[in-house]
């Protein structure tokens, strides 16, 4: 029963969505199914929050390695949630000057806004920026012309890297009229719109066929891996 009901819900919803795409009369059924999906997706945030709490608390209580990080995660989660839910520091808007509760939770000056602006944004940007350092280090150690394929990849990378910079313009101006197609930016555009395009189309079609077959397996109940392990 624990597996049959979810299987039936998944199959019914899946087939309704497929049918609604092809038969105009059933279009609204598909819209309703998507509305339910969106409501479930919103509820999933609560489940996600609960799961995060459970996992981190377990880690702290078992004193597993790195439990200090779990404590930081937990504290950040609880504080952010508190700031947002209780609209701490939110100033009233012009529309409701006497009631701060009517103002948006992330209004400028609020505690949550402060957290996002001065903690989350700089931290997220820093994590992304760190990639440049690690890519540089990895490029020095790992990007080797060990065989023909690797050499082709290397040359292509050079062309695209230079084609995305001002150097490409300098080289283009320096090249004679008849050799303009050999400028880095023109070659980059050619690589992206011919070789890359052909490869990506093949991959996209392959993925689409794979997704179609996997989806059918899920809808027909052949693939039940999404239900997780457990008793029948």
């Amino acid at each position: 029963m624990k597996r049959t009901v979810p299987l039936m819900i998944a199959a019914t919803t899946g087939f309704v969505l497929i049918v609604s795409y092809f038969i105009p009369y059933t279009e609204s059924w598909g819209e309703d199914a998507m509305t339910w999906f969106n409501i479930l997706a919103a509820i999933a945030f609560i489940l996600g929050g609960g799961n995060l709490l459970r996992m981190q608390l377990q880690k702290i209580s078992d004193r597993r390695p790195g439990w200090g990080y779990a404590a930081v995660t937990l504290a950040a989660f609880v504080i952010t949630l508190f700031f947002g839910l209780f609209k701490i520091g939110v100033q009233p808007t012009a529309a409701f000057p006497t009631n701060a509760w009517a103002a948006p939770y992330d209004r400028e000056g609020s505690a949550l806004w402060w957290c996002v602006e001065y903690l989350y944004r700089p931290l997220a940007s820093t994590m992304f920026a760190l990639l440049a350092f690690y890519i540089a280090s990895a490029a020095f150690r790992a990007f080797r012309a060990k065989n023909t394929e690797a050499t082709i990849l290397l040359v292509t990378a050079f062309i695209v890297l230079l084609g995305r910079t001002y150097i490409a313009g300098i080289v283009r101006e320096w090249l004679p009229e008849g050799l303009q197609s050999l400028s880095f930016d023109n070659m980059t555009n050619y690589i992206m719109s011919v070789f890359n395009l052909a490869g990506m189309r093949a991959i996209t079609i392959g993925i689409a066929l794979g997704v179609a077959s996997t989806s059918l397996k899920v809808l027909l109940g052949v693939d039940r891996s999404y239900l997780g392990a457990g008793d029948e």
Partner: peptide, 20 residues
């Protein structure tokens, strides 16, 4: 920064291959 970052990457890759 993009220009100089890319040039550095190319220089590092070339250097890495010379050493290799």
């Amino acid at each position: 920064p993009q220009l100089f970052g890319h040039l550095l990457l190319i220089a590092l890759i070339v250097m890495g291959n010379v050493i290799y």
